[in-house]
Design a binder for these strands. Structure first.
Lengths: 196, 196
DNA sequence: CTACACTTGTGAAGAATTTCACAAGCCCTC
DNA sequence: GAGGGCTTGTGAAATTCTTCACAAGTGTAG
């Protein structure tokens, strides 16, 4: 989050940012900002604030964003297809190198400079290209089975859009985006907003 | 999360679930489960566990899910269009009643039983149908302006897919889904996994 | 009806996180 | 180069969250 705002500030030409300024942008407190950043090192200059570009570089290095990450998308349904063309990924250094599906009707359909590939090709492709990250956009009832396959193939980080809780071994990182659950959180907020 | 798993258990025909069982499913601890649930009331039976169906009903009421929520989707790009057809929403009681865009090339295009509508129609539609929830899937640089418009129209809860931090007044709930940021979290995990 | 095996609900203890508050440091001005 | 206005980095305090541990129920079996 800090990185995002710092890039905004850099784009606007600011050379330094105080913890106060960052806190206002991020909706936290100055003390929180300072504690968070100090966890990774001492990046600020007293009296001045944090040097924007320098801090950006540090954060990008900490996050491991100084390289491009190849990513595969598994599932070429509506969501998978939308993600495959999502510019936000490439902008942030994530290069979608392949889209996979098991539906013969979808396999072979053109995508990017190539075409949608059969899920059977996932393992060899992943190994050949050293891909470590996958985005999962398959129906919930196949999700676990597909994850197992992906991990077998060498995937070590997964962003899961399927509305299913997945089990992965400890060396694999997993993040889930559950849109319906987010909506339910909003419904809760709405039903309780009137009586605070 | 508890609701999700309880529904699974109900579908499998289980009548009761212990905090231990729920904890295993959710990846937390029995004590956590009990504390969480006890915040809203005393739902369990000592010696037995929690009555599954009864707890489901309670949670649905707490979350405000006993009604269907009408939802509008703003932005008919790739992501917006995918969300408009996303079955997961309807399954969970969120009925997409309209899709809006400001691009004349998209406005009028068929969608569902109707068609994509002009953003100018948002305010009257929202008021007429009493819609309180919106999903935002527009480019980041228009997001704030569109949110302001939506709030003006009467929207009080927003699920934001645009990679932008939005400012909303206190009576409006906002949740953001930032896919690139999730990927960056995974990149961090990957770069630090090897040296624990 | 009693003994027993379970499981909840919850104060209290423990751990983690956030906030406070201030010494130390930096820059600018005079 | 001394003084003053800012701002960081960080121990300590305050707060919040999680875990522990056990009394109090509940159902079952004999």
């Amino acid at each position: 989050m800090y990185l995002r705002y710092l890039e905004d500030l850099a784009a606007r030409g600011l050379a330094t940012a105080s913890s106060d300024a960052l806190a206002n942008l991020c909706g936290t407190t100055p003390a929180q900002v300072r504690k968070d950043l100090s966890f990774f090192g001492s990046f600020g200059k007293r009296g001045l604030g944090y040097p924007v570009q320098e801090l950006i570089d540090h954060l990008r290095e900490i996050l491991g964003l100084q390289q491009d990450w190849p990513v595969v998308i598994i599932g070429a349904g509506k969501i998978g297809a939308a993600l495959a063309d999502y510019r936000g990924f490439l902008q942030r250094g994530f290069r979608v190198v392949g889209v996979y599906d098991n539906d013969p009707a979808k396999v072979g359909r053109p995508w990017g400079g190539s075409h949608i590939r059969d899920i059977a090709a996932l393992a060899p492709d992943v190994r050949a290209q050293g891909v470590q990250m996958a985005v999962l956009a398959v129906p919930a009832d196949h999700a676990q089975q597909v994850v197992d396959l992906a991990i077998q193939a060498g995937i070590r980080a997964i962003l899961n859009f399927a509305p299913a809780q997945l089990a992965v071994p400890p060396h694999v990182s997993l993040k889930a985006v559950n849109m319906a659950m987010e909506m339910e959180g909003l419904a809760f907020a709405l039903t309780h907003a009137d009586a605070p």
